[in-house]
Measured scan of single mutants.
Amino acid sequence: DDLEQFAKQFKQRRIKLGFTQADVGLALGTLYGNVFSQTTICRFEALQLSFKNMCKLKPLLNKWLEEAD
């Protein structure tokens, strides 16, 4: 599944880049005006958010990865 794959890759890249889940949540706030909690990022990576929320977060996290690289 696409979302599952993305969540896995996101977590690996985030760790490799040296960011915590909280860092990502704050960075999203800075970039897009939407601060996300560490818990939200954690749940995303664990696929524990609703499908709708996963779909909403994915493009933001994808963009963040591009910026962070």
Rank of each mutant, 00 (worst) to 15 (best):
A27M: 07
K56L: 12
Q48L: 08
A7W: 01
Q48N: 11
G29V: 07
K56R: 14
V35G: 10
Q9W: 10
F51E: 15
K16C: 06
L17D: 04
T30L: 08
E45R: 01
Q38T: 14
C42A: 14
K56N: 07
Y32K: 05
K63E: 06
F51N: 13
A46W: 05
Q38G: 13
L31R: 14
M54H: 06
F51R: 14
T20S: 12
G33Y: 06
G25L: 01
V24D: 01
T30Y: 07
Y32C: 15
Q38P: 13
R43E: 12
A22S: 09
L28S: 00
L17F: 13
D69V: 08
F44H: 00
E66L: 07
N53P: 05
A22N: 02
V24E: 00
D2K: 14
L31C: 10
Q9K: 13
S50R: 08
K63H: 10
T20K: 03
Q38E: 15
E66F: 11
D1N: 15
Q21R: 10
A68V: 15
D69T: 08
G33F: 02
E67S: 15
Q38Y: 10
F44K: 04
E66P: 06
R14V: 03
I15N: 07
Q12N: 06
Q9R: 10
F51Q: 15
Y32F: 13
G33C: 01
E66A: 05
T30S: 13
Y32P: 04
N34M: 10
F44A: 00
A68G: 05
F51A: 12
G29S: 15
L26V: 11
Q38K: 10
L26Y: 14
K63W: 04
C55Q: 15
T30G: 13
A27T: 07
F19I: 15
L47A: 08
F10I: 01
V35S: 11
N53Q: 13
K8F: 07
L31K: 11
V24N: 03
K63P: 02
L31T: 11
A7H: 04
A27S: 09
N62K: 11
G33Q: 09
T40A: 08
T20P: 04
N53I: 11
P59V: 08
A68H: 08
S50A: 03
C42M: 09
K63S: 08
L65K: 10
G18R: 06
G25P: 00
F19V: 10
L60S: 05
F36R: 15
L61P: 00
L47D: 04
L57W: 07
V35F: 10
R13N: 04
R13T: 05
L47T: 05
R13W: 04
M54G: 02
E45K: 04
C42H: 13
Q21S: 09
A27Y: 06
W64C: 03
T40L: 10
A46M: 15
K16F: 05
R43D: 07
K63V: 03
E67R: 13
T20G: 05
D69E: 10
L47R: 14
A46P: 01
A7G: 07
R13Q: 08
K11S: 06
L31N: 02
K8R: 13
P59M: 09
D2Q: 11
F10K: 08
A7I: 13
G18Q: 02
G18K: 06
Y32I: 02
A46E: 10
D2M: 09
A7L: 01
A46K: 15
S50Q: 15
K16G: 11
N53H: 12
T39S: 12
R43C: 07
E45L: 04
L26M: 14
C55D: 04
L57P: 14
C42K: 15
E66R: 11
E45T: 03
L47C: 14
T40C: 05
K16D: 12
T40W: 07
G25C: 15
V24G: 04
F10G: 09
T20Q: 01
T39V: 09
D23V: 00
R14F: 02
L61G: 01
F19W: 07
T40H: 02
L31V: 10
L61R: 00
L47S: 09
D23G: 10
K11L: 00
A22F: 09
G29D: 03
F10L: 01
V35C: 07
S37Q: 08
D23A: 12
T30K: 15
E66Y: 04
N34Y: 09
L31W: 08
K58I: 07
S50H: 05
K8I: 15
A7Q: 03
A46L: 06
F36G: 05
W64E: 02
T40V: 11
V35Y: 12
K56Y: 03
P59S: 07
C42L: 10
N34F: 05
Q9I: 07
T40D: 07
S50E: 10
